[in-house]
């Protein structure tokens, strides 16, 4: 059974790198401060003030390329972003987002959706509904392991379970 998330869309292009998502100078700040610097280096002006809990990012190719900084997806999540839909992701960013419980789905919607559109995203099945157009667009479903990790609340909870199972078998 899919979960349905509802929110507004922020639109970004191709190759949004991690320096744009969270600039290097902000990496020293504590986890709960990161949201204020989300996308501070990008073309979206004042994103951190405009974003509301539950909003989405729709982007182009190679989202999150560059550094391994987990502070990048963490900043987006802490700012309120509930899911990202992009044509493709850099590998480390995708792993990091899943590991912290932020759903990242694949789909090419940059030309079908406008900034500010209210949409519904179904996970893990992979579908985005745009009420204004009354159209459903198909997304690639999340992999089983990614969905397991997100449902567990992130990789740390998964690791706790592995260690508990190991302890039980000792």
């Amino acid at each position: 059974m899919d979960n349905i998330l509802k929110g507004r869309v922020f639109l970004l292009g191709d190759n949004v790198d991690t320096d744009q998502i969270l600039p290097g100078y902000a990496m020293s700040f504590s986890e709960d401060e990161l949201g204020r610097y989300a996308l501070a280096g990008s073309e979206l002006n004042n994103f951190a003030e405009k974003v509301q809990p539950g909003d989405f990012i729709v982007a182009g190719r190679n989202f999150g390329c560059g550094s391994s900084r987990e502070q990048a997806p963490l900043a987006l999540k802490n700012a309120g972003i509930a899911a990202i839909v992009a044509v493709s992701y850099a590998m480390i960013f995708r792993r990091n987002a899943i590991n912290i419980g932020l759903p990242v789905l694949c789909g090419d919607l940059v030309n079908n959706i406008k900034e500010g559109d209210l949409v519904e995203i179904a996970i893990p099945g992979g579908r985005i509904f745009v009420p204004a157009q009354d159209v459903n667009y198909k997304l690639e479903p999340l992999s089983k392991s990614a969905w397991d990790t997100i449902q567990a609340g992130g990789l740390i909870n998964k690791v706790k379970k592995i260690l508990a199972d190991r302890g039980a078998s000792d």
Binding site: S68, R69, E70, P73, I92, R95, N96, N99, I100, G154, L155, I156, K158, V159
Partner: peptide
């Protein structure tokens, strides 16, 4: 290369 949570694991 990984992020911090993968490394913690």
């Amino acid at each position: 290369p990984v992020g911090s949570t993968d490394l913690a694991a």
